[in-house]
Simulated assay, not measured.
Amino acid sequence: MTNRVLERTTKTARVELKTSDEAKDTIRQAAAAYGLDLSSFILSAAIERAEMVLERQRRRELSEAGWTRLNEVLNSHSAPTPALVSLMRGKSKNERNTTRERRREH
């Protein structure tokens, strides 16, 4: 996916960064080893890392105990809470809070 992002987009935005001469030289050598110019190498590495971070954020992994607990909750036959009923009826959070406040007043 990283290469497709680089190839299919028109480059209109600019990113600037400062680094040490040693770091720049190391990155330049790695870019040359991959057959890329410095900018393409840095951008490719940054996009790859960004995609990994975003994927990790989208996906949650449970421990065995967490998986067991989740299944217990999903399989329990408890009555829905008033908040869940409101949510399922499509009421906004503000409407649910207003309803809750009215109940407290009575």
Rank of each mutant, 00 (worst) to 15 (best):
R89F: 11
R60Y: 02
S92C: 12
R4I: 05
R103S: 06
R96I: 06
E16V: 14
K24H: 04
W67C: 08
V15S: 04
L54Q: 06
N71C: 10
K93E: 13
R89I: 10
T9Y: 01
V73C: 02
N71T: 10
D37E: 14
E105L: 11
G35L: 03
L87A: 07
R102Q: 12
D25L: 15
E61H: 00
R14Y: 01
L74H: 07
R14S: 06
R28M: 05
E22F: 03
R96E: 04
R59G: 00
R14I: 09
L36A: 06
A33S: 04
G90A: 05
R14F: 02
V15H: 03
Q57L: 03
K18F: 09
I47E: 00
L74D: 01
H77R: 11
L62G: 04
V85K: 04
H106G: 12
L43H: 01
R59N: 05
L84H: 09
A83P: 07
P82W: 13
T26F: 12
E48S: 13
E64D: 12
R56W: 02
S92W: 07
S40F: 02
T98S: 05
E7L: 14
R103G: 01
S44A: 07
V15R: 06
R56S: 06
T68Y: 05
I27A: 10
I47P: 00
R14H: 04
K91E: 13
V5M: 09
T9C: 01
A65E: 08
M88K: 10
T26L: 14
A46R: 00
A31T: 06
E55Q: 08
A83Y: 06
G35V: 04
L84T: 14
W67V: 10
E72I: 11
N97S: 12
H77W: 02
S44E: 03
D21C: 11
R104D: 03
L62F: 10
T99H: 08
S78C: 05
L17F: 15
A83D: 04
E7D: 13
A83T: 10
R56D: 07
L70R: 07
R69M: 10
